[in-house]
Simulated assay, not measured.
Amino acid sequence: MHASEDTAEQIAALLEGIVRRQRRATKDGVGASVTHGQFRLLRTLDQADRALRLSELATQLGIVPRSATSVVDDLESAGLVARRPDPGDRRATLVTLTPAGTEVLTTIRRTRRDAMVTLVARLTPEEQSTLHHLLTRLAQD
């Protein structure tokens, strides 16, 4: 294995560890009641700032419509999202966040942010700026 491949593998492992910490912090903050996939769906609805069709949700999440339906079923049972008929298309269903869903999403975001603040507090302000810059470059499409 070349040195650059070894470095890339090490970076991938480190990033995976950080993501695991974030997910663990989320579970600690709201319990195991919201999975990562459910969090993504809640976040997608919040960012859309409007009700979305199930097919739109599936597309934005990169999952098949049947999977989106299953996630919405679970979130609806928990009172975190609500379905309603699409007034523009009787065959379609719109999904929206409920006030309880917004509250859970806010709690998850706060918990994740607090966990990251604790983690990056180990770095100097200059290191934090460099890390932010490098991650931004890596995240660009």
Rank of each mutant, 00 (worst) to 15 (best):
E56S: 04
L123D: 00
A68D: 02
L45I: 11
G101N: 10
G79F: 09
R110T: 15
I108A: 01
R83M: 08
D73V: 05
L119P: 00
D46N: 13
S77W: 03
E126Q: 07
D74I: 09
D73S: 05
A82F: 14
T59M: 02
A92E: 10
Q47F: 09
A78K: 15
P65T: 10
L52I: 13
A100N: 10
L54H: 01
R53T: 12
L94I: 08
P125N: 00
T111Q: 13
P87D: 11
D114K: 12
A78L: 14
T124F: 05
A121K: 06
L97D: 01
L75N: 02
G88A: 13
V72K: 00
D86W: 11
L80G: 01
G79R: 06
L119E: 12
S55A: 09
P65M: 04
S70H: 09
R91H: 11
P125A: 00
P85T: 14
R43P: 01
L45P: 08
E126W: 02
L54W: 00
A100P: 08
A92S: 14
R50G: 07
R53H: 04
T118E: 14
E126V: 11
E76C: 02
L45C: 07
Q128F: 02
D86G: 08
R50A: 12
P99M: 01
D114V: 14
L119H: 05
Q128W: 02
G88F: 08
D89C: 07
T69Q: 06
V72Y: 00
V71K: 00
E56C: 05
E127C: 00
V95Q: 01
S129R: 07
G62T: 12
A58Q: 06
D49N: 15
T106D: 14
T93R: 12
S129V: 06
L105E: 06
R112H: 07
T118F: 04
M116L: 15
V104Y: 11
T59N: 03
T93M: 09
L54D: 00
I108G: 04
L75P: 03
P65C: 04
V81C: 05
S67V: 15
P65F: 04
P99V: 07
Q47I: 15
R50M: 09
R113S: 11
E127W: 06
D74K: 12
D86A: 10
D74G: 11
A51Q: 14
